[in-house]
Simulated scan of single mutants.
Amino acid sequence: MKRTLLIAALLAFLITPFTQANASTYAKTQYPIVLVHGLFGFDDVLWVDYFYKIPYKLANKGATVYTATVSPANSSEVRGEQLLGYIDQVLAHSGADKVNLIGHSHGGPTIRYAASVAPEKVASVTSVAGVNHGSKVADIVRAGLQDGSTLEGVAGTVFNAFANVLELVSGSGISALPTDSIAALNSLSTQGSQSFNARYPEGLPSSYCANDGKVLEDNGVFYFSWSGGSTYTNVLDVADPLLAVTGLAFGEKNDGLVSSCSSQLGYVIRDDYRMNHLDEVNQTLGIHHLFETDPVQVFITQANRLKSIGL
């Protein structure tokens, strides 16, 4: 009965127009929100954080927000285990029983792992352009690096060094968390994603692009997702040309690094925002499509959605 009432309440909310009444508590969820970055994520570089202005704006609307510390590059399982340790710290600090996880890009599989392994600690999973069925960009890179080859070793060293430089520049120093860019690449490939999905299937649609994932899984966790479906969104954004090029790897709607169909998980809020992979986290410096919803507002609205169903 409780499960039926929860689903009914969610469906009622989804068809109800949003308002900004009681703005100071608009995003005040019952459980803390934990943001989880994707590949090569960082704390902040020159005062610009990965989730640009999003934690501040959420907190300003009443949310309790944490930004997880996980390896900038490693496998989904390794990052997921690190996230579980971070969740324990959040629960101890906040006194809460559970958390609401929101992960971008590789943060998607990372939070799915945590929810699958320890559902008693997770109220909801929200995947933002999550690499849930792999990325064709990762497939191309993986195909160009023969397993065990010298080139693969050199590439791994270079990208690991890049991740460490990001940590240093962001002021966090090189963390004790291990960095393994090749393991990350394997996780983000189609083959790696399929293997991961076989072990942690919660929230997934019945098939690629079916868009029929369960919003409330048997493990008691609510699943949501959204993503962009555009690559070049603003001529002033210096990152857009690169994403326009990488987007050519896909023969379908994508955000430059992840296809819209690959991003689908649980209840799909939208998979066609006029946003690219960086716009989704309000990068670069908040520059996005002039006639699309502010990416920050999408996060705030999701927090309100979670609040409205008691999460």
Rank of each mutant, 00 (worst) to 15 (best):
Y113I: 10
Y113W: 11
A114V: 10
A114I: 10
A114K: 06
A114G: 07
A115L: 09
A115H: 03
A115D: 08
S116K: 01
V117F: 01
A118G: 00
A118I: 00
E120Y: 02
E120L: 01
K121P: 10
V122F: 02
V122L: 05
V122S: 04
V122M: 07
A123F: 06
S124T: 15
V125C: 07
V125P: 04
V125H: 04
V125Q: 07
T126L: 13
T126Y: 01
S127C: 10
V128L: 06
V128P: 03
A129F: 05
A129N: 06
G130H: 10
G130W: 08
V131S: 09
V131W: 05
N132W: 09
H133M: 06
H133G: 00
S135H: 11
S135A: 13
S135K: 06
S135G: 04
K136L: 13
K136P: 00
K136R: 12
K136S: 10
V137E: 06
V137A: 11
A138L: 04
A138E: 05
A138T: 05
A138D: 02
D139I: 04
I140C: 00
V141Y: 06
R142Y: 11
R142K: 14
R142T: 00
A143E: 14
A143D: 15
A143I: 01
G144L: 12
L145P: 05
Q146S: 12
D147T: 12
D147G: 00
D147M: 01
D147W: 00
S149A: 09
S149V: 06
T150Q: 11
L151R: 12
L151S: 14
E152A: 15
G153A: 08
G153T: 11
V154S: 00
A155W: 11
A155P: 00
A155G: 01
T157D: 04
F159E: 11
F159K: 01
N160Q: 08
N160W: 04
A161Q: 13
A161Y: 12
A161N: 08
F162A: 14
F162G: 02
F162W: 12
F162C: 00
A163R: 04
A163Y: 09
A163P: 09
N164I: 00
V165W: 10
E167P: 10
E167G: 05
L168K: 14
L168E: 14
L168I: 15
V169K: 12
V169A: 15
V169W: 13
S170T: 02
S170A: 14
S170I: 05
S172P: 01
G173W: 08
G173R: 05
G173V: 11
G173D: 11
I174W: 10
S175A: 14
P178L: 04
P178K: 04
P178M: 03
T179N: 15
T179S: 08
T179Q: 12
D180W: 07
D180L: 03
S181L: 00
S181N: 11
S181F: 13
I182F: 03
A183C: 07
A184N: 03
A184C: 04
L185V: 05
L185T: 03
S187Q: 03
S187P: 11
S189F: 12
S189N: 08
Q191V: 14
Q191A: 15
